[in-house]
Simulated assay, not measured.
Amino acid sequence: MNLYEETYKIVKQIPRGRVSTYGEVAKALGDIIASRAVGKILNENPYEEVPCYRVIYSNGDIGGYAGGIEKKAELLRQDGIEIVNGKIDLKKYLFNDFETDYPLKKLREEQQRLKEKLSMEDDFSVETIAGMDVAYGKKAYGAYVEFDAESMKIVKRKVVSMEIKFPYVPTYLAYRELPVLQELIKGEKPSIIMIDGNGLLHPRLFGIACHFGVLHDIATIGIAKKLLYGKEKDDYIFIEGKKVGKRLGKIYVSPGNKISVESAWKIAKKFMKYAIPEPVRQAHILANEARTRDEK
């Protein structure tokens, strides 16, 4: 999904003489959590016919604008909008009657359907372990690094790059990075994949490692640098009483698909050389090298 284009379609609906807010546009996309992403998307608006200056803060402040705040205020006044002490009266000017199919809601529903195919039972061989990560610049740069499980030596490296069509939105990382990961996995058949992101340790119990694992019917492990959700007790992470992951040093390991919490943790621990398991660390290094080389 191209969330940029979905956002522009919504903002184009704001009529002259009315304004909307970042939050209202996010709601029209299907989730208020996307409010900050809406601001980023509009700051990159390439279309003259998309009146991004008509989107303001929910407290009535006019907010930022790529052309400058003074230019935004001028355009709003030309539309007939009154600005008093830097604020706009939303009771008078707010527009939120958008025609929308709530694309983010559709994505949540899709994940709920895929979630039914998830397995937390150990169902894997341990021959090769791959790590995948994505770095961002003007484009998205994905890296795949595969290790032989016995010798723990690298046997394959791969890099891809592509246009970014989905900004960072909390809890929707899968839809930002899946297009890159899908390209990376073409022609590859590792036993297990470690992904920079969460597995079960996710508000919907379906992070990127789960999503990718189900799509490809493969064992996956999520490796997260921060605990953004859940409660920790005796190194284990719980969500609503369900054990979903385990801390390993300063990182959090959670099963993605076809693997248990304990097995995911043991495999991650086996590949710990520094602060992050080597498959993910090497993929992280490779992705950032590709970005630096391409955008210098």
Rank of each mutant, 00 (worst) to 15 (best):
K105S: 09
A224N: 02
E295W: 00
G60V: 01
K106N: 06
K138W: 02
V160T: 14
K189V: 10
K186Q: 15
Y252R: 10
E49S: 05
A26L: 05
H211R: 09
A290L: 13
D31W: 11
G131D: 06
L94E: 02
Y136L: 03
K87N: 09
C210K: 02
Y168V: 05
G213Q: 10
W265V: 02
D235A: 08
K165W: 04
E109W: 07
E82F: 12
G245Y: 06
R113F: 11
R157L: 01
I62Q: 02
K246L: 01
E109H: 08
A290Q: 11
I259D: 09
E48Q: 04
F166E: 03
T220Y: 06
D97L: 12
T100D: 02
M1L: 12
V180N: 08
R18V: 00
D79H: 12
G17S: 09
L42K: 05
A34L: 07
L227G: 01
A174M: 09
K233V: 07
P46Q: 00
G199M: 07
S151Y: 10
T21Y: 01
E74R: 15
G187K: 09
M152V: 04
I251P: 04
P170E: 11
E295F: 00
G86P: 13
I195N: 06
E74N: 15
G249R: 13
L286H: 05
S35K: 15
T21P: 05
P277F: 10
E183L: 13
M162S: 13
L75E: 14
A28R: 05
T128Y: 06
P279I: 12
A209C: 03
K12E: 12
I218Q: 06
L248N: 08
K158V: 02
K27A: 00
V160P: 05
R281I: 01
P179T: 14
E110P: 00
A149W: 06
V160D: 02
P167Y: 11
S263Q: 11
K165S: 14
V169A: 02
K153S: 14
